[in-house]
């Protein structure tokens, strides 16, 4: 039984790490812009297909595929923000950009459907079926890579937000955009940077999720609901909270599957979400929304 508990713990860390990567981009955008980005899921999908194309059509290594997904995500984030979200924000409406994210999501899904077709792709990497076994425990090299890349990304993002000038400026914009502007911070440029970082993270998480997900043009949609839940549980915009909530949801999935029933996973996760909203609406970490990001 101990080995099963340990194994489910490992499983929880792997899936939790992926959720964290997806949710970090969402929480970053919300923290800075107070905007929910429904198109985030589709950037995850695009990242998965970018990595798939890089490895399967161009014969490059999976690591190059991850980099390609990161760049594709960042480029799409820049493009969508520059051409759609930014002009709508300038009109002063909060609702228009929100609705636009839904429109962008539907457009991206259908564009990918037209281009790539509906049949699931088998995205196996050289590491997918390479299984490391120790006693009763097992871990694929792919899953080990997921943990390593996710951890590195989280550390880098955390360091960027806490210790760099740009990170501090981003936090300033998140807390009070007008005052930040008075201090000489160009909030439009920082908003663009937020979109690019968040979308790059989404693209990269797609590359890591691709071999785990059922890869179709709708793949990202299947994880985005949980990512939203994680953002709420962790506290809108709170990076530390998102990391803890992501791992928590990963553990909930593993241990609910083991000891209860996988059909109950969503009930447990969303019961936790409701509990958080009722007891601690600012999330697991912060006491005030302004403390997030």
């Amino acid at each position: 039984m101990i080995s099963i508990v340990l194994q489910q713990g490992i499983n929880g860390i792997v899936i939790g790490s992926l959720y964290v990567l997806v949710a970090l981009g969402l929480t970053l955008i919300y923290g800075v812009l107070v905007q929910i980005n429904f198109a985030h899921a589709d950037i995850v999908t695009l990242g998965a297909f970018a990595a798939y194309a890089t490895t399967h059509f161009f014969g490059e290594s999976y690591v190059v595929g991850i980099a390609a997904a990161l760049i594709a995500g960042a480029a799409l984030g820049w493009l969508v923000n520059a051409t759609i979200f930014s002009p709508l924000r300038e009109r002063g409406s909060e609702l228009l950009p929100l609705i636009a994210t839904i429109g962008v999501s539907i457009m991206l899904q259908n564009a990918m459907l037209a281009l790539l077709g509906p049949i699931p792709y088998a995205f196996d990497t050289p590491y997918s079926n390479h299984v490391l076994r120790l006693g009763g425990l097992f871990l694929t090299v792919q899953n080990m890579l997921i943990i390593v890349v996710s951890s590195a990304s989280i550390i880098l993002l955390y360091g960027f937000m806490r210790f760099t000038f740009l990170g501090k400026a981003l936090r300033a914009v998140a807390q009070d955009r007008e005052t930040a502007g008075l201090l000489g911070i160009n909030s439009n440029q920082l908003i663009m940077l937020t979109f690019v970082i968040a979308s790059a993270l989404a693209g990269m998480s797609g590359a890591l999720l691709g071999p785990v997900l059922v890869l179709t043009p709708f793949a990202g949609t299947s994880v985005i609901v949980k990512a939203f839940a994680i953002v709420i549980i962790g506290g809108f915009g709170n990076i530390e909270g998102t990391i803890i909530a992501g791992l928590l949801v990963g553990f909930i999935e593993s241990f609910t599957t083991q000891f209860l029933d996988p059909g109950l996973i969503d009930i447990v996760v969303f019961a936790l979400l409701l509990l958080t909203l009722a007891v601690r609406p600012t999330g697991l970490i912060a006491d005030k929304r302004e403390e997030n990001v």
């Binding site: 499983n11 997900l213 994880v223 996988p262 059909g263």
Partner: peptide, 20 residues
């Protein structure tokens, strides 16, 4: 008897349970 929704992606936890 293990049932699951269509939104489940990672089946490692289910496979672990069966292995046990």
């Amino acid at each position: 008897d293990i049932g699951f929704g269509r939104d489940v992606n990672d089946f490692t936890a289910i496979a672990t349970r069966i292995a046990g």
